[in-house]
Amino acid sequence: MSTKRKRSIFDIISEYFEDLQERTERFREALIEKPSWNHRACTMEPLRNIMVTPTEVIVTVDLPYAEENTIRVKPISRDTIEILAKMKRKIRFDDFGITHYEGEFETLHCQTRVPVPVYMDKMELRFKKGILEIHLPRKHEYEIPIE
């Protein structure tokens, strides 16, 4: 006769969280699983990274081929910025040896959500070695006093 070990409440909670984590991971992957280019808009999506420090949020964006004087960073909501840059030359799929897609790209474009409140109007930009740095001072909306 098989004996089934009774699961403790801790096992059940642990399984629940493991399951939740797996679902979240699958959902996240489904959301980001898309081409890194948009044929209709003639845009390519650059790689980016976000770092939160105690005083500011630093968003960096890798902008190969970007014309420095065409870089535009626009806040499009309280927590989202849009980055656009024209490329020095049009890039075609066949520049990469790809012949089964057609199209050309002339702009790098992406949108990024900023994870904590910031002052969008105090944004500072810096472009060095093809990397755009966007500095956004943090807004500390409330503080919990230590008793």
């Binding site: 390519m44 190969p64 081929y65 093809g130």
Partner: peptide, 12 residues
Amino acid sequence: EEIRLRARDVMR
């Protein structure tokens, strides 16, 4: 620059 553009997907 070409490598950086081309390698975005593998990097991601």
